[in-house]
Nucleic acid binder design. Sequence first.
DNA 1: ATCACTTGCTAACGAACGTTAGTATGCTTA
DNA 2: TAAGCATACTAACGTTCGTTAGCAAGTGAT
Lengths: 194, 194
Amino acid sequence: METVVKKSRKQQIEEKATILFQERGYAATSMRDLAQDLGIEAASLYSHIKSKEEILQKICFRMADEFFSAWREVELENSSQAAKMEKAMIAHVKVITKDTDASAVFFNEWRHLSEPFLSEFLGMRDDYEGRFKKILRDGMASGEFKIVDEKFMMLTLLSSLNWTHNWYKPEGNLTPEEIGKRLSGLLLNGLKNR
Amino acid sequence: METVVKKSRKQQIEEKATILFQERGYAATSMRDLAQDLGIEAASLYSHIKSKEEILQKICFRMADEFFSAWREVELENSSQAAKMEKAMIAHVKVITKDTDASAVFFNEWRHLSEPFLSEFLGMRDDYEGRFKKILRDGMASGEFKIVDEKFMMLTLLSSLNWTHNWYKPEGNLTPEEIGKRLSGLLLNGLKNR
DNA sequence: ATCACTTGCTAACGAACGTTAGTATGCTTA
DNA sequence: TAAGCATACTAACGTTCGTTAGCAAGTGAT
């Protein structure tokens, strides 16, 4: 027996918008496109939302929240920096794969945010990247990692992680957990001292 | 003494457009924006170009050409698959760093191409990715590389390479050659049998 | 001196854009 | 039964979009 949860129209709008923003990009998606996909008139959208950009804001900041929330369990890991990094990478991939459409919008369309949202967004991104850099720094300080260019390593690491939204398929044979493990294995193997 | 090469207006248009497309995205860049940056009227652009999309096509297919051209010297490398992969990665980074703006457009805006250009573009991308996969396959067949998921590895590899356009600065302390070397070192270390 | 080419303008086209105002209908709750 | 909320409509607003037509001035080559 299934429990049918009725989604509010507002939620339906945001979900459809996420798909369209991902497929065509924010700027190339019109409110009339969105309305048509929902079977209503464009003007009717405004009974539920304030503006087109509001939808983008919701998507971007909800994803940001999820990345930060997922970090909580990362902080619990204290055995080694390698273990901590693996946990961080797995957590990151889990968030992405839970909603690849929203992730694509998050990664590709944030620049269409207006101020002050843009600045807030970039601030959060800096914070998040800083957490990865800190693990690398701590690992190098303790001798666990080779000395490498911290920023270079962080960028390479995150680029591999963040690309997963482009190819992950829930029906594929790799679970999010396994993807995170493989990526950390791959990228940390060349990094570890032994 | 400097040699001043006068650039044709058409070329100036394409260069400015590249910058704007990179900054704001193709769809969010208007012909009036572009014209204003050049100090002329929007209508005047059409004395030099056929359409907005023509500019995008030029950028995308010129970049594609450069990636394929750079591959020629890769084919000369036959000592080992690891050496070949390193050469491929260096060549790839060199192309990206020679024009990071055009690269950004190439990577992010190709979906705004109309048919048949879109299909042609995707075909070329498949071809190019196939070349990386082949090096991996050959390396695994010869025992040089560990057996891994070929597609997964190729995607991870290319995502690290392709992200460089986002952070590379010509005035930085890393040369394109060194970036390619470091990336191949990092990603291939975990891959090699030893 | 003429021709061709490059470069640019003004004016305007039809289409699409995000959004607002005002109204109507039906459902749920008090 | 009344109130309030969710939902959707038609009509239209002012703006911006990519693009075209037609014209004009300057430059370099023949």
